[in-house]
Nucleic acid binder design. Structure first.
Lengths: 336, 336
DNA sequence: CTGAAAGCGCTTACAG
DNA sequence: CTGAAAGCGCTTACAG
């Protein structure tokens, strides 16, 4: 910038004012400065600016595992909204290396703090209460999607309206004549979220006068590997015939469930209807294509980023609505 | 840091030296400082450090579209290697918003320069020659994966050894008795890369004494939408029976091709063998599972990042090897 | 073994 | 309308 000032024959203060579009500089001076900018290929030093201003215009995004087909769209949403607002995004993935995930998060956190990000968007319960408090104490805003039960006050949340989503799912199945619906659910899931999708599922069943049976529940320890969904479904199929449809924690589990049904010689949807949650790409190309409760991932990212920027104290909590995509994996009950 | 100095009763200079593990401070002084670090939850201000040191220890990654299932793994590889090296990563996706992609890239570029990243990793030809030169002029290292024909000197490259990869593909098909192999290729692809995978495919065919026929080539304008692969295959199937296998630009196209074959009442692999390139997740769950030339995406990211750090002038070019994954979409020729 | 001082590239009252 | 000066939080010769 000192080169600029020299070239334009003015002081640093004036250059700074013109570059930032502040009033009070003659046309002529401004023109000389802009000409110098072009000639010297000047690009402001954002580092110096950040130090001086005490704001980096940078936000961090923290997700469990970038490779999970769920997150890229979410991050895209965050990025898109961020760019619109002139912010940069540092993406941090927990499982970036395979070692102890807690210590990875710890390091990511320190990195983010020392880089003085203005805010942090994260998906789910990735940090401890103490860690979140530390961020808040450092005046770093925090918004979390699908927030855990306990969050320090000051944290903003983006919720998915599974109440209405599960309503759509059960409504769809019910209208196809399904009365006995199984569930593949993740063990300990309620440890992670404030309100679980399963509870909403049960509520929706109840509202339709349909039963929720423990014996029709398949449990999985992890929901990011189709093999586990397949195994859970295989166990559940000992009771094949007792139920006519199964709702799965997510699409990965649903794809696994379809494989298990196929292994057992059952046809989807004639013998069994299968519903997933997420709508990842693979769900549209499996056979049959999966009926699934689509989560608006991009939108979730945008909403999360905007919640971070929001000044008002009113936006403590934003809500996003899922949307049922009906494809080939669901059909009339007892069509076989 | 001034708080630290006060708390420990020493000068800033001493604090700095101890924090950075430099020699020449008494045990006792160091201990006092570290105690203060703990008490005050001190975290170094990386912004100030960057300004002073003239290095940000940050690298940018530029990809065409984050949502493309290809890139997340690549980015993960970059991140993983970066963290190991104590670097942060700013991820930039071209298609983050839908507007004119050139101007998006232009803005991303300015952002990266003004943030003074130490280096940039990008996939493919995302920037113009002039833009790349500008980076180099700003002393920002550049490495590009699948580099275009023309790159300014100083740019490092990561190549995929499609020569050997296509060798594996053709070898596999040939050993199954296929002699007439079709191809689905992207129009203008050679405008983007220094050496195209198609050329390697043709070489591999020639080496096996197999013909390359223009009439067995299906063209697509874009390779990230299965619908286009499906349409290309549909056109190609006017000549069904003339060829017994098809190799596709990538898995997206291959999945589309399988759909088209299915539409036409052909069975895969009995009537037609299909091979993709990439090995995205969906390829493992389509029916039949896709035989594909897997690209080591994570490794590519790691190699790219490391190439950036490499001091020596020798590593102008790194090479990564693909690996054929045989699944259900290929079978003996004429098995029908 | 330790400290005072300069400087990285900016912005912003404060004067003029 | 414009400039001189201080300061953001660090590091690093240079003295002692």
């Amino acid at each position: 910038m000192v080169d600029l000032a020299t070239a334009a024959g003015v002081s640093l203060a004036t250059v700074s004012r013109v570059l930032n579009g502040q009033p009070g500089a003659s046309e002529a001076t401004a023109a000389r400065i802009w000409r110098a900018v072009d000639q010297l290929h000047y690009e402001v030093n954002h580092i110096a600016k950040s130090l001086r201003m005490g704001a980096t215009h940078t936000v961090g995004v923290l997700v469990h595992d970038l490779a999970n087909p769920f997150y890229p769209d979410f991050i895209k949403g965050v990025e898109s909204a961020a760019h619109r607002a002139g912010l940069s995004v540092i993406v941090c993935s927990g499982a970036a290396d395979e070692s102890d995930s807690t210590s990875v998060m710890q390091r990511q956190l320190q990195m983010l703090i020392s880089r003085r990000v203005d805010g942090l968007v994260m998906y789910g319960r990735l940090l401890s209460l103490a860690q979140v408090r530390r961020l808040l104490r450092s005046h770093i805003g925090v918004v979390v999607v699908e927030p855990p039960k306990r969050t320090p006050r000051g944290v903003r949340a983006v919720d998915i309206d599974f109440r209405e989503g599960m309503e759509q799912v059960v409504d769809h199945l019910s209208s196809l004549g399904h009365r006995r619906i199984a569930l593949i659910r993740q063990r300990w899931h309620e440890e992670w979220v404030a309100r679980s999708r399963y509870r909403d599922f049960q509520d929706a069943l109840a509202e339709h006068g349909l039963p929720y049976r423990k014996k029709w529940v398949g449990w999985v320890d992890d929901v990011n590997d189709t093999a586990l969904g397949r195994a859970a479904m295989r166990r559940l199929l000992k009771r094949a015939g007792e139920f006519t449809a199964v709702v799965c924690h997510n699409d990965m589990m649903a794809i696994g469930a379809m494989q298990a049904a196929h292994d057992a010689g059952l046809r989807v949807p004639e013998d069994l209807s299968v519903v997933g949650i997420d709508d990842i790409f693979a769900s549209s190309v499996v056979e049959p294509p999966l009926t699934t409760l689509a989560l608006p991932r991009m939108e979730m990212g945008e909403v999360a980023l905007n919640a971070l920027r929001e000044e008002s104290e009113t936006v403590r909590r934003a809500v996003v609505r899922p949307n049922l995509v009906v494809r080939g994996s669901t059909g009339p009950a007892g069509a076989a």
